[in-house]
């Protein structure tokens, strides 16, 4: 129970995509409260299209690159480049790694986080996807450092991602369209933090069912 194989793990991305597509209306609804209400539509379109181009034998590397290509070339918005960079940098990090163990996965997430931070300009506390991603990765790393196994570290990541997502309710947006609302952006979940939580949760669940 320490690793998954890269080959054949591409469908994890399809499972994440299914959750995003299922939550299309929900993501658009929360985005519409302080943004323009297109987050779910664009996310579902991008993840859905990518899912159709991934096959069961694909490596996780290839599946993430496919998703990145669709997001960058066909979706646009702000989530296109942000998640596009994230999945592209994660795919670049994995490359042809055969076995994805806890350390490899953590380093892959770190590469993805750095990709997001390079293209965007947000910090933790700005009411963005970073408020999910940063604490989730911290929780994952410290669980491993504390002796947890891969599955337990993934559980810690999931829990921290949900807490991080929920922390955006009380935040005032500092970046993106909702930033112009100041105090009026308080009291609503951030759509990017919410979709990021779905992605990280999808990774955790997808990996746990494949651990050998």
């Amino acid at each position: 129970m320490t690793a998954i194989t890269n080959k054949g793990s591409g469908p994890i991305i399809q499972e994440i995509a299914a959750v995003i597509v299922e939550n299309k209306a929900y993501l658009s609804e929360i985005d519409g409260k302080i943004g323009d209400g297109d987050h779910g539509v664009n996310m579902a379109k991008g993840f859905g299209r990518a899912s159709d181009r991934i096959s069961a034998e694909d490596t996780l590397t290839d599946a993430m690159q496919t998703l990145s290509d669709v997001l960058m070339a066909e979706i646009g918005g702000s989530m296109g480049p942000l998640y596009g960079m994230m999945f592209s940098d994660m795919a670049d990090h994995l490359e042809d790694t055969d076995q994805i163990d806890a350390a490899v996965f953590g380093a892959m997430l770190r590469a993805g986080l750095e990709g997001v931070q390079e293209i965007g300009s947000a910090s933790v506390g700005d009411k963005t996807l970073l408020d999910t991603f940063v604490p989730a990765l911290e929780a994952y790393d410290s669980a491993l450092a504390g002796g947890a196994d891969f599955a337990a570290a993934l559980d810690a990541m999931k829990a921290a991602a949900a807490t991080g997502r929920d922390s955006t309710i009380d935040m005032v947006a500092k970046i993106g369209r909702s930033a112009r609302l100041g105090e009026r952006s308080r009291g609503v979940l951030d759509a990017g933090a919410t979709s990021c939580c779905m992605i990280l949760t999808g990774f955790a669940d997808g990996i746990k069912t494949r651990l050998t």
Binding site: D36, D38, V41, N42, M72, A73, G76, G77, S78, G80
Partner: peptide, 11 residues
């Protein structure tokens, strides 16, 4: 771009 959404970097 899509409705109310930035065009892609590619575009």
């Amino acid at each position: 771009g899509e409705l109310f959404s930035s065009p892609t970097a590619k575009s």
